[in-house]
Simulated assay, not measured.
Amino acid sequence: MRRILNASPLLALLALAGCQTVQGAGNDLQSAGQAISRESQEAQAGM
């Protein structure tokens, strides 16, 4: 039981770091999607 209590802060830190990583990846994908949308709109306007 004591081992679990000692490991709890470390596990919480790892979980928090994982959330930040996923959020960053989501932001990157969103930015890429917006860039693709802009380029496709410009291509359609140029036709």
Rank of each mutant, 00 (worst) to 15 (best):
D28W: 09
A32T: 10
S40F: 07
I4P: 05
I4K: 15
S8T: 12
L16V: 12
A35S: 13
G26H: 08
T21S: 02
G46A: 13
I4H: 11
M1I: 10
M1L: 11
Q20K: 05
G33W: 00
M1Y: 08
R2H: 08
A32F: 07
G18L: 13
D28Q: 07
S31P: 00
G26P: 02
A43I: 12
S37K: 13
Q23R: 03
S40T: 09
Q23A: 11
Q23N: 03
G26F: 10
G33R: 00
C19H: 03
A7D: 11
G18K: 05
A15N: 08
T21N: 01
A32N: 09
G18W: 11
R2Q: 11
R38A: 09
G24K: 01
C19A: 11
E42Y: 14
C19R: 06
Q20T: 07
A35H: 07
I36M: 04
N27H: 10
M47Q: 10
R3A: 11
N6Q: 14
Q30A: 14
Q41Y: 13
A12I: 14
A45M: 02
Q44H: 06
C19L: 11
A15V: 05
I4A: 15
A15Y: 08
G24Y: 00
A35Q: 15
Q44D: 06
Q23F: 10
G46W: 07
M47T: 03
P9G: 03
A45S: 01
A45D: 01
I4G: 11
E39W: 15
L29C: 04
C19N: 05
T21A: 03
A7V: 00
A12P: 02
